[in-house]
Computed example of a mutant assay.
Amino acid sequence: MDKDRIAYLCKQYLDGIASREELLELEGNFRNPVMEDLVKAVLFEVYAEFSENNYPDLDARISEDIFSRISSQVSSKPTIRLWLRIAVAVAAVTVIVFSIWIFNNQDGNRVKSERIAANNDVAPGKQGATLTLGNGKKILIKDISSGNIASQSGVKIIKSKNGQVIYQVTDKTPVVLEYNTLSTTKGEQTQVRLPDGSLVYLNAASSLKYPTSFSSLKERRVTLKGEGYFEIAKDKAHPFIVTTNKQETEVLGTHFNVNAYDDESSITTILIEGMVKVSSKKGVRILEPGQQSSVTDNTIQVAQGNIDEAVAWRKGYFRYTDEQLSVVMRQIARWYNVEIIYPQGIVPQVALNGKINMNRNISQVLRMLAKTKEVNFKVEGRKVYVLK
């Protein structure tokens, strides 16, 4: 039996339409030592496809333990009991990363949304950025080969093989202080290794302005628009300061994420490790690991944050915990470079929970969101219509 046949049988089972003969056929292959490994692999692959989620960080030992447990439960009991156990075992893994809208919708809504998305698909974003030098010259990072891409006062700028922009200081006493800006459009992400060794990840539709060398400066100050994840090199004598339009975040050496998109209701900063000081017109707050600040025109608040959710984009995921549909759709708009339209003029009030691989086409993402039964979508070119 080939992989396609096994995949078909798995899909029939997961769709809830497998006949008794098909269940027996699949069970027989699961019992077959020669076929067992293939069935295991295909079952996980097909289930991941149905749940719209991959498990790249799933420990292989966990999956082996699960399937060993399934194997130990196979007996002469009725087929339906075996498959109930298989379903429970697989669900034990997926419940870690998913909530209410994963799997059990088998109505016409899913078929309809699949048909729409299949005819109007949009590929996910990619690594890419534009580097603007101090003299105004612009360099499209994705269009140039790896290696040395520019030289400025006391600094050599390099593109690594994985697309990261790296600054190497060649002269610690630069004659002229210059500033560069690294920016991403919608549908792009990038990374930059700053002259002090700090690493910054930029999300879509974001920019970072920074000096080409910090050696003659008392502080390491950069300006962020959009969203960035920072891993700051330790230097107690030279604090690192991230400036946005409403706040400043000061650190000595730490990991943190700042979301400062203009279309969001607040600027959020979440601390992963170390300590940061967040300052705005409304006051100053010190964050400890796991805490998140939210800055608006009128307030600055600190609460316990969700680190996994806040930095999921850096690991290639959208991740939500009781997140409003409007917030989710703004993230999708930035990553897929699409326009979100609400034809009825009303944003559906839907709270979403889940984890979505950002490398999937938009059709797969929309199919998942449609499984809430609260919302549907129509895609026309790069316009996504959100339908109640």
Rank of each mutant, 00 (worst) to 15 (best):
K3C: 06
R5P: 00
A7V: 04
L14Q: 09
A18F: 08
R20P: 02
L23Y: 14
L23D: 12
N32Q: 11
V34W: 07
A41F: 05
V46D: 02
E49Y: 04
F50I: 04
N53A: 07
Y55R: 03
P56M: 03
D57L: 01
D59S: 06
I62E: 12
I66C: 06
Q73M: 09
K77Q: 14
P78C: 05
I80Q: 13
V93H: 03
N105W: 00
R110F: 13
S113K: 01
G125R: 00
G125F: 04
T130N: 02
L133K: 10
L133N: 13
L133T: 11
G136S: 05
I139W: 07
K142N: 13
I144M: 07
I144G: 06
S146W: 07
I149F: 13
S151E: 14
S153N: 13
I158F: 15
K161Y: 14
Y167S: 06
V169E: 09
V169C: 04
V176H: 11
V176R: 05
T181P: 06
K186C: 13
N203E: 08
S216M: 08
E219T: 11
R220M: 02
R221N: 14
T223K: 06
T223Q: 10
L224A: 10
F230Y: 14
T244D: 08
Q247L: 09
L252T: 13
A260N: 11
I270L: 08
G274Y: 11
K282E: 15
P289F: 12
Q291C: 02
S293V: 03
S293P: 05
S294G: 11
D297E: 15
D297P: 04
T299A: 15
A312Q: 03
W313C: 05
D322H: 08
Q324R: 05
V327P: 00
R330Y: 12
I332C: 01
R334K: 12
R334E: 09
E339A: 09
E339T: 10
I346F: 12
P348L: 07
V350T: 11
N353D: 15
N357M: 01
Q364H: 15
L366H: 08
F377R: 02
L387F: 11
